[in-house]
């Protein structure tokens, strides 16, 4: 082994060389162009080996798409549930109450409504004022309550 080989062994391979050996090898490389070129080439190789280039664009998204993660929690409805149910019950109470109040405030309304409803049953084209009120009030209450239960049904099916 010639001098250059010996020094290169120390410079490139000799992690266990003594400080004196390293100093001597470095002094040699400073004067020997061939050894200096080899040391530079090694330094370049080490630099390239240590390079961490970025993963390709969209890589993280592709990884996330293939992970069998549970679906994210459903977003909270913008209207809290108690508001919707409260509104439905209030709607039903107001219209139902209105009908009952009308009936009791003027008992003739009941008989009028019965007469009107009978007439309506006999001839749907002719409808009296009180029958119209009764039908509207009861229908509104039924629609409100039915809507509330339908809404709940849709939520539970999702």
């Amino acid at each position: 082994m010639n001098k250059c080989d010996e020094f290169m062994e120390i410079l490139v391979l000799g992690e266990d060389a003594t400080p004196e050996e390293k100093t001597a090898a470095e002094a040699h490389a400073a004067e020997c162009a061939e050894c200096a070129a080899l040391v530079n080439a090694f330094a370049q190789a080490e630099g390239e080996l240590a390079t961490v280039s970025e993963a390709p664009n969209g890589f993280a998204d592709r990884v996330m798409d293939q992970l069998p993660l549970p679906e994210p929690a459903r977003r909270e409805s913008w209207t809290p549930m108690w508001v919707i149910s409260g509104a439905a019950y209030a709607f039903a109470a107001v219209f139902g109450g209105l009908v009952i109040w009308l009936a009791f405030s003027d008992p003739s309304v009941i008989s009028g409504a019965v007469n009107d409803l009978t007439a309506f049953a006999a001839s749907p084209g002719a409808i009296g004022y009180s029958a119209f009120g009764t039908i509207t009030g009861v229908s509104a209450a039924v629609v409100a309550v039915a809507g509330y239960f339908a809404y709940n049904l849709v939520l539970s099916a999702e």
Partner: peptide
């Protein structure tokens, strides 16, 4: 997402 983005370059 954070784990993937933290380690993607080195894993790659």
């Amino acid at each position: 997402r954070e784990l993937v983005e933290t380690y993607r370059d080195m894993v790659f």
